[in-house]
Design a protein around this nucleic acid. Structure first.
Lengths: 344, 344
DNA sequence: CTGGGCTATGAATACGTATACACAAGCGCG
DNA sequence: CGCGCTTGTGTATACGTATTCATAGCCCAG
């Protein structure tokens, strides 16, 4: 059982050729005569030989492995993103090493960049103050920012058009007649949270609807935070008639907060999220939300990364893909209800 | 930017020592004089040198990387499991290569086993008919089955005590007075689904409660499947007063199915799940469920794996950790309601 | 018939590190 | 004072593969 695995040299001996020839056959080198190739393949089939990926990587300098940095894997959207990344990397014949930024401190991460363990990096959680993306690019490793971008940063990036998506969400609420609107948002730690916030505000401003400061709640990203935000907003005598959250997870919290208070959705309150996670389509939430084109984002990101690996000197590309509002039961298809009534 | 990264030989030249000495310093070899060690560390600090992980791995035969096989990353429980695996591997100084069984066909997976890209495997989704676990063990690679076990299979395994947990759930419902109980289950593709099914049946049998065949629905594992099962069970003239599902995700579907039909939980229907995912604690579901000790399972699994890597000939261990019923609002704290009434 | 180009292959080397081996210096003890 | 043991260091090698270089055979044109 614990046998030393066969090497290309073993194969060569069995086939009566040199190790170099075996290597040539395995890498599809053109200069091999048909019958020696056949002989090697014959022996190959009889053995359970597999090339040692380490040795190959050391020689070629390519590992066919991509490092993926992600945070909060348990968050529904991230899980879907990860799933898609895994699917497409696998389809491209690439392995994935997954690092969780929360678990690994920045310093240890920087080391990995130089270890040549991976051919490139996919960063899905870039924030302004994390040193990760700067370290990655500074190290010269091929890197693509996925899903979360950074302005004025010379690095390939693929993101959804968060600003436009948020703007659409805001306009949708305004056009439905809402005037007293709540916003549950996050600190602007990166472009995506910033744009999902500012785009929404812009839509309201363009329509001449003022966003009351007390209706803006800046919080964290967990379900419980959305829940708490809802409690705060809905405990007022005259609560907002609609709440938009920067991310579905917060919207789920808001919906649950409303449920806990007996506030009916969408009769008494409209709720709009952002991400269109799978959960948003469940009856429990039935959430109107802005769809992010996960597949297209990941596909483009992997494309960009492979191109950069192939040609590190290429011009950097920043691609922004359109987002689309998906209307569900957390907002009414029927005309908007009259301004705020309180349902204790 | 695209500089060739410095090697230990570069370091040696700068420090005026041999490459072997540099290597000795980096691996904390005892036979190095304090001042040469200091000199090397001095140079090390001035350089941005990092050992080439590939070369090191090829020489030592250890990559400090673990291969993790998982399925359905977007499923809440799996995401939590993955998160915990990442956390604990990282804490142990190990990297994680993640493979999704759904994306990679069995054959290609088998190849990876021999590539020596990883030191060992963590299989979280073993099923009776997948060839993955047999291939892994046959290849001699250190392997641990996590979360899903296989009977009579000579391989380290760490699982929750699914049978006991399911039994507790069944007894809980029976003792609460339920007599007309629904079971939403899966094909017995592995020990865990089997035990979660049989343990529940045993509890009912021990209490003299018969499980009507028409109340048993064997389906798939998605939310929509639970939803459909609920529709089926609840459309009867005399629907069951309680439904137990083999996994939380199905319970969420059942709850949503009940919601869609206007069946009130827990007034008209009790629902019990299995896994105690984070979502189960959300108001939207507030699900009574059986808690799986994720942390303990992963911790024990990684321990076992590291031991096996250190000593491949050790006796195999199968560890079964207790599960515990967590009661929430999807079942009533108040006495059970009288037998089946229909709420169309 | 001969020489030049082409083809197929083997020998040798390099990737960057860890480690077995050799060896010089230092030291204690007879 | 010399012998054996310990200590610190350098030299050389091996891990398994891809690839360069050299070479032997071959074909064809002159």
């Amino acid at each position: 059982m614990g046998e030393r695995p066969p090497t290309s040299r073993d194969l060569a001996r069995l086939a009566g050729v040199s190790q170099a020839t075996v290597s040539r056959v395995l890498t599809n080198h053109p200069r091999v005569s048909p019958d020696t190739r056949a002989r090697v393949l014959q022996v190959l089939a009889e053995t359970n030989y597999t090339p040692n990926a380490l040795a190959r990587a050391m020689k070629t300098g390519r590992t066919d492995t991509i490092g993926v940095f992600m945070t909060r894997v348990t968050s529904p959207f991230h899980a879907e993103l990860l799933d898609e990344i895994g699917r497409l990397l696998s389809a491209a014949g690439l392995h994935m090493i997954l690092w969780n930024i929360e678990h690994d401190p920045d310093e240890s991460v920087a080391e990995m960049l130089q270890q040549r363990l991976v051919d490139g990096f996919l960063l899905t959680s870039a924030t302004y103050d994390s040193k990760l993306h700067t370290a990655a690019v500074a190290s010269g490793a091929p890197t693509v920012l996925l899903h979360r971008g950074i302005d004025d940063f010379d690095c390939d990036q693929v993101v959804g058009d968060n600003w436009q998506g948020a703007y659409d969400a805001g306009r949708y609420l305004v056009e439905a007649g809402h005037r007293d609107i709540g916003l549950v948002t996050l600190e602007h730690t990166g472009n995506s949270s910033r744009d999902r916030d500012l785009g929404f505000r812009a839509a309201l401003a363009d329509a001449g609807v003022t966003l009351k400061p007390r209706n803006v709640i800046t919080t964290n990203v967990r379900h419980a935070d959305g829940h708490a935000a809802a409690q705060k907003l809905l405990s007022r005598a005259k609560p907002p008639t609609a709440i938009y959250t920067i991310t579905d997870l917060l919207a789920f919290g808001v919906l649950d907060g409303a449920r806990a208070r007996g506030v009916r959705v969408p009769d008494d309150l409209w709720v709009v999220g952002f991400d269109n996670t799978d959960l948003a389509s469940w009856e429990a939430f039935d959430l109107t939300t802005v769809d992010q084109p996960i597949h297209a984002i990941v596909e483009a990101g992997i494309d960009l990364l492979r191109n950069r690996i192939a040609d590190p000197t290429a011009e950097t590309t920043i691609r922004q893909l359109p987002c689309k509002l998906v209307v569900r039961g957390s907002t009414a298809h029927t005309p908007p209800k009259p301004a705020g009534n309180h349902t204790t």
